[in-house]
Write a protein that binds this DNA or RNA. Structure first.
Length: 777
DNA sequence: GTGCACAAACTTTTT
DNA sequence: GTTTGTGCAC
């Protein structure tokens, strides 16, 4: 499909630009001067630097409406990209609301991925694919990589599929095809990685499949190598809008530059202070460089905040000030008063959870001298998901309703993926990855050997696995119980495949038939584990979700990209989520627990990315604080159990960066309380004591000072690793967390053989050993 | 070929 | 503390 008339026709511009231009435009009056400037400057490059809570979505949607109202573009000539489906949905809804009619005619408002799928299906042949290519999920991707590694005869301990997937993703994020991976990356060690990457791409093409990264990568490659195609789209997309520009990776950046390169009508919205996805390839540099990339760019700053109290804004501003290389923004507000940001330290993580639980209880009743809060107005934002556990445990025991946002997504659950694999096979029998997934689920007595036979047969005849299985059965290569079951499966698949065409049968009925007759439903009915009922429930929900689609194919098409599931139960609940998941959300009251060095900022982040990592952590702190509208409570604990092992920690360095004037310290009894004997009446003393004057705090200050000189600190893990390998000598006394004391017998690379006093002789990884003198406590 | 037991590795963050 | 992978017995 290459004619744009066709495109025009089938995308159907249901909104008539001209008809709308006649109507008044109240949407502009709603905007403040900065927003208005960003909206009205339609032509040429515009960078909208929108701080947290400054109404950027409003401005962005107003801009789209303005483009339509002024007749500058028809709905289908606007390319508007977001990162999440949720953001896309929201924008669609808001455009519709502003226009006073549904915005169905905006086919190119969507996520990077969704839009690329659409484009790639049209030009699949240019990437060596057929237009009905499948999109692999992470699971399929890993299985494929594992096979490749094993087939290449490489030690899969040295090349775990997960790691390889990470490396390949990294390259794809930077728009690097195997032949373009720079020598620096491909050096001695990664030589094999590039090799495997190339093989992986070949294999994907054979399977007529792409992974997530490919969606962008293929389109960039096509645009770069097919000038005519690029030019078509450059003409077609007259205006380009990008949300969350600070989160774009190199591939997305190149894609945008290619598309907007000719007319340069590109408007990027973002906030360099909220760039928190560097670890998955996002480049803050993209937004920092915007004016260089698009000379003559108009930069608008949205700085008036409509969300938070002055205290909260002051706290956030003061923290983020510690970062270098910002474009610079200062949030301000008309609002006055409000509570100061509250800071509290606890003895340990459990106490922290207990305190927050009690606090929430009190807030509900309005017994904190403030207005009362509903549970759904309260959120707990954590750095790492394992922190959620303490809160879940606590809230369960006190019966406080909560909801975890994020977690494993609906479509990532095992049973859903299994069911989807069945559907995929019914629709396209050549889907080998789907076949591999379900041949032996439920158990059919087809183990490694039988599966290998199928693989070999299929490869020998150059056919799909299903076909290979059929041939292998014919030739009597698979016998017995397994053979019978396989015969049944192959027959069933063919039968179900024919039922797809059956007009009398809805695709929902078909889905149920497939799940029942394959024995998959029974498999979970017979399962006695506690999660089995939930899984059956999920399967029911999956079938229900089919209702919204014309047929199975249509469903499968969409599902691979729609990974979010908003559980929409109406009950008021406290939200628990990670800081990352909280971006873009806001809550009247926010708790930010776990502000301890090592946890937040995360040690790993600093180890891996040094100062850059620390700055990203700081932005995360900024994002966290700015989620709060009225009340923000930061807390830290002196002790925390990590891996079931107690560790103590210093309060986060970010706590030092909070402005004293805007912080109220709620003195806890205990370590940070007043440094001494808990005397009677500590409750009242606690009310006036001040962490800033406590010995614990001063100690902390002193430590911070020393550390400040050598920031960022040397990687703790690396040091231990290297010392561990280098320093152990045969005969040395060592300590292992689980096995206790022992003596080194032999050293082999990173593995050390130790004769433990009580646990016998074991070979363990050096990292889990410490020299006897180093033993903590 | 399946199921159990034990040991290792693991914990950021995810479109 | 939990999951995942491996080795062993049935």
């Amino acid at each position: 499909m290459s004619s744009f008339d066709e495109m025009d026709a089938f995308e159907g511009a249901s909104l008539s630009a001209r008809a709308m231009a006649a109507r008044p435009s109240p949407y502009l009056d709603d905007l403040n001067p900065a927003q208005r400037a960003a909206v009205e400057r339609l032509d040429g490059p515009v960078l909208m630097l929108a701080g947290a809570g400054t109404g950027k979505t409003k401005a962005l949607t107003a801009r789209i409406v303005h483009l339509l109202m002024t007749g500058k573009a028809r709905p289908n000539e606007i390319l508007a990209v977001t990162f999440t489906n949720k953001a896309a949905r929201e924008m669609k809804a808001r455009v519709g609301r502003m226009l006073g009619q549904p915005a169905e005619g905006m086919p190119w408002l969507g996520t990077f991925h969704a839009i690329c799928v659409k484009l790639l299906r049209r030009h699949a042949e240019l990437a060596g694919l057929k237009s009905n290519f499948t999109i692999l999920d992470t699971d399929d991707q890993l299985r494929l990589l594992k096979q490749l590694v094993q087939a290449a005869g490489i030690d899969d301990k040295r090349w775990p599929a997960r790691m390889l997937a990470g490396i390949i993703d990294g390259w794809k994020n930077r728009a690097l095809t195997p032949d373009r991976v720079p020598a620096a990356d491909a050096g001695a060690y990664n030589r094999k990685g590039v090799d495997l990457y190339a093989q992986y791409q070949t294999r994907l093409r054979e399977l007529n499949a792409v992974d997530f990264g490919d969606l962008l990568l293929h389109m960039v490659t096509i645009f770069q190598t097919h000038q005519d195609v690029l030019e078509q789209y450059q003409r077609w997309f007259r205006y380009v809008l990008v949300d969350e520009y600070q989160d774009t990776n190199v591939a997305q950046y190149m894609w945008l530059r290619l598309l907007a390169g000719a007319h340069r009508n590109i408007c990027c919205v973002g906030d360099d202070d909220q760039s928190i996805y560097g670890w998955r390839g996002a480049e803050v540099g993209n937004i920092l460089r915007f004016e260089k990339d698009f000379p003559g760019a108009h930069v608008v700053r949205l700085e008036q905040n409509y969300r938070s109290t002055p205290h909260i804004l002051a706290a956030a501003s003061n923290v983020i000030r510690g970062n270098e290389g910002r474009l610079g923004k200062e949030l301000w507000t008309d609002a006055e008063g409000g509570e100061k940001v509250r800071l509290i330290g606890h003895w340990d993580g459990e106490e922290e959870a207990r305190w927050i639980g009690e606090e929430i209880d009190a807030m509900q009743g309005g017994t904190r001298g403030m207005r009362s809060f509903h549970l759904d107005e309260i959120a707990i934002l954590v750095r790492a998901s394992h922190q959620m556990r303490a809160f879940e445990d606590r809230f369960l025991t006190i019966g406080l309703p909560y909801r975890v946002i994020g977690g494993p997504r609906f479509y990532e659950r095992m049973e859903i993926r299994d069911a989807m694999a069945y559907f995929r096979l019914v629709v396209s029998p050549a889907d080998d990855l789907a076949f591999e997934r379900i041949v032996n689920t439920p158990k059919r007595g087809l183990g490694d050997k039988a599966q290998q036979t199928i693989q070999i047969t299929a490869r020998a005849h150059g056919v799909s696995l299903v076909e290979g299985a059929r041939l292998a059965l014919e030739q009597g290569l698979i016998k017995g119980k397994g053979g019978a079951a396989l015969g049944q499966l192959v027959g069933d698949l063919a039968r179900w495949g024919r039922m797809v065409e059956d007009a009398d049968l809805s695709h929902m009925e078909l889905a149920e038939i497939v799940l029942d007759e394959s024995g998959y439903t029974a498999h979970w009915q017979n399962d006695k584990t506690p999660e089995a009922p939930g899984r059956l429930e999920n399967l029911k929900e999956l079938v229900k979700a089919l209702e919204g689609f014309e047929n199975l194919q249509g469903f499968l098409e969409h599902v691979s990209l729609i990974m979010d599931n908003e559980s929409q139960d109406a009950e008021r609940k406290v939200s628990i989520m990670t800081l990352h998941a909280a971006k873009g959300l806001e809550f009247p009251a926010v708790f930010l627990p776990g502000w301890e060095d090592g946890l937040f900022p995360s040690q790993r982040s600093m180890d891996e990315s040094g100062l850059k990592g620390l700055e990203e952590e700081r932005r995360l702190a900024y994002v966290g604080i700015t989620r709060a509208e009225e009340l923000c409570t930061i807390s830290f604990a002196a002790n925390r159990r990590v891996f079931g092992q107690w560790q103590n920690a210093m309060p986060s360095r970010f706590i030092d960066e909070l402005p004293e004037d805007h912080v109220e310290v709620l003195t806890p009894p205990g370590l940070y309380g007043g440094g001494g004997m808990p005397a009677p009446g500590i409750e009242s003393r606690a009310a006036e004591a001040n962490v800033y004057n406590s010995p614990g705090w001063k100690r902390l200050q002193a430590r911070q000072g020393q550390r400040g000189m050598s920031q960022p600190r040397e990687s703790r893990n690396t040091v231990i690793d290297m010392e561990a390998v280098a320093s152990f000598t045969i005969g040395e006394r060592v300590f292992h967390q689980k096995f206790g004391y022992g003596a080194v017998i032999e050293i082999e690379g990173d593995k050390v053989e130790v004769a433990f006093d009580k646990a016998g002789t074991k070979k363990v990884v050096a990292r889990f050993l410490s020299a006897k003198d180093d033993v903590p406590f």
